[in-house]
């Protein structure tokens, strides 16, 4: 059994649950009832990266569909799922599956490697998220359908984005960058007010 008590957050001292920045009422975000932006990090999230061997992309997706019940469609970033985000050609970040289950599904069609410690997922949501993204990410929201992932950056930190909803996004970054990213996210979101949600939320 894995001892969860020895696990530590990668986000550093700035990432503390509660309100940061401009008071919620002043932002007008979500009718003033909530901060303009809400952010969440759930520690202990299982992340497995898979990548198909050359020419095996389609077969790997079929195997994943069969073994993990994840329909990755034609393999395009637009066919990503909330728990299976395309991070490159024939390459995905799967969340919520342990390595053994993924290995069993992928078999000899590709690589499967644990990234539970290596990738940090920050989820942001709220009326002012487009304003935050305008500051931090060079992607055009009008050309980014819900359900699509994109490889880009967040404040110059390389990352994979996934659009969960109109104003909801998941941000996957390397663990060693997470502290800087968390700090900058809070600073950049301060003008809108940002609520760091507790992992239990």
């Amino acid at each position: 059994m894995m001892d969860q008590s020895v696990m530590r957050s990668p986000l550093g001292p700035h990432w503390t649950p509660g309100h940061h920045g401009t008071a919620a009422a002043a932002t007008g975000g979500d009718g003033g009832a909530q901060a303009g932006i809400r952010a969440l990090h759930k520690p202990g999230l299982l992340v497995v990266e898979i990548a198909a061997l050359p020419g095996k992309g389609k077969a790997m997706r079929a195997a994943v569909k069969k073994g993990l019940k994840l329909d990755l469609g034609d393999g395009s970033p637009a066919a990503s799922l909330p728990n299976a985000v395309c991070s490159g050609p024939d390459r995905y970040l799967l969340t919520g599956f342990d390595l053994a289950a993924v290995k069993a599904a992928v078999g000899d069609l590709g690589l499967a490697v644990d990234q539970s410690s290596g990738r940090v997922r920050l989820s942001i949501d709220g009326a002012n998220v487009p304003g935050l993204l305008a500051k931090s990410c060079p992607l055009d929201l009008t050309k980014w359908p819900v359900g699509m992932s994109q490889a880009s950056h967040f404040l110059h930190i390389g990352c994979t984005w996934y659009r969960r909803s109109e104003t909801g996004f998941d941000l996957y970054i390397g663990r060693s960058f997470a502290r800087s990213a968390a700090e900058w996210l809070i600073e950049s979101a301060a003008e809108f007010g940002v609520e760091i949600l507790s992992p239990e939320d």
Partner: peptide, 16 residues
Amino acid sequence: WPDLQVAFASVTDQWG
């Protein structure tokens, strides 16, 4: 060598 049956991933951040 696009035909070499190999795939790789950076795990720098995965391991301390």
